[in-house]
């Protein structure tokens, strides 16, 4: 609440305004907040610049690099950014996420980082085939590769070695989990499960953005607790936690997304306003 008795304005940081961002803007305005888009590409800040009066920013920047640096600029200006620069850094890098999950003692597929394609060949054999190679940064299942044997690994890693980017030479490998045709996405906001869905796909990658279909589901108490702990481990106030069951029924954390796309979850949960649920938990607590 501000000095005039009105609700404090909330900024939505974005360089691309999609349906999710519009949904958040609508939910904020319905809640009585003056909500505006803050264009990421227009931001600039001097390192020694003064802190301002504060305020709340929902970080919806689609570019990982800009999302992180923009959050550092806004935090330096005294603003509260959700998700924070630290959370964006952790969630936006699969290896940092794996380390955070491991530190918290949470179950995840066996994961190894190799500092070169040559080291990755040995790591792949140690993890065992099939093994999954993922880019450290990226989303929507892009460039995620399932490698079935040592011969495929050598070929794929030869291509990896030919990439010009230094970061591409660092290889993230993960045990392939033979899941039962679906994985789970849980939306966790400020330590509370908002909704969850099962994601099915013909492709072994079950991302809805790859054409997978989603249906609502209720998580059992242990899985709900695991999703909440995974979000907490990464420091994400708003988290899209991806989980998978292996054939033995054990639930593992795959990744934690800091800029949750919730159109699929909204379609699966028609009676629940996902954007309003996020706004209530974030802005309600910050007002």
């Amino acid at each position: 609440m501000n000095a005039r008795g009105g609700r404090d304005p909330v900024l939505v940081l974005a360089s691309r305004v999609g349906p999710d961002e519009k949904g958040l803007l609508t939910a904020l305005r319905r809640g009585g907040h003056a909500a505006e888009v803050l264009d990421t590409n227009a931001l600039r800040r001097a390192a020694s610049g003064p802190a301002g009066p504060g305020g709340l920013v929902l970080n919806r920047e689609i570019g990982q690099v800009r999302a992180r640096y923009a959050a550092t600029m806004l935090e330096a200006a005294g603003m509260t950014v959700v998700n924070s620069a630290a959370a964006v850094q952790t969630c936006g890098d699969k290896w940092l996420t794996s380390l955070a999950l491991a530190r918290a003692g949470l179950p995840a597929p066996r994961t190894v980082l190799a500092a070169s394609p040559a080291a990755a060949e040995e790591a792949a054999a140690e993890v065992g085939f099939p093994v999954v190679l993922k880019p450290l940064v990226g989303s929507w299942g892009r460039l995620v590769t399932r490698v079935r044997d040592a011969e495929e690994a050598a070929t794929v890693l030869e291509h990896v070695g030919a990439q010009p980017s230094p970061q591409a030479q660092v290889v993230y490998l993960q045990e392939y989990v033979d899941k039962p045709g679906y994985d789970l996405r849980a939306l966790v906001v400020r330590g509370e499960l908002v909704a969850a869905m099962r994601r099915y796909a013909d492709d072994w990658r079950t991302n809805v953005s790859r054409g997978g279909r989603a249906e609502p589901c209720v998580l059992d108490p242990d899985t709900e607790k695991l999703a909440v702990r995974a979000a907490e481990a990464t420091g994400a106030d708003i988290a899209g936690v991806d989980l998978v069951e292996d054939r033995a029924g054990a639930v593992l954390v795959l990744e934690v997304n800091h800029r949750v796309e919730f159109a699929g979850l909204q379609a699966a949960h028609g009676g629940l306003d996902i954007a309003a649920s996020i706004v209530d938990r974030i802005v309600g607590g910050a007002s």
Binding site: R16, V17, I62, G63, Q64, V65, G92, V137, G138, S139, W140, R142, G240, N257, H258, R259, V260, E261
Partner: peptide
């Protein structure tokens, strides 16, 4: 398409997906 002006309403082709885009 991306809205590049609201008054008057103008649109341009939206940027291509960048390597670090995502959730």
């Amino acid at each position: 398409l991306e809205v590049v002006s609201t008054a008057p309403l103008l649109v341009a082709l939206a940027p291509e997906v960048a390597e670090d885009w995502g959730e």
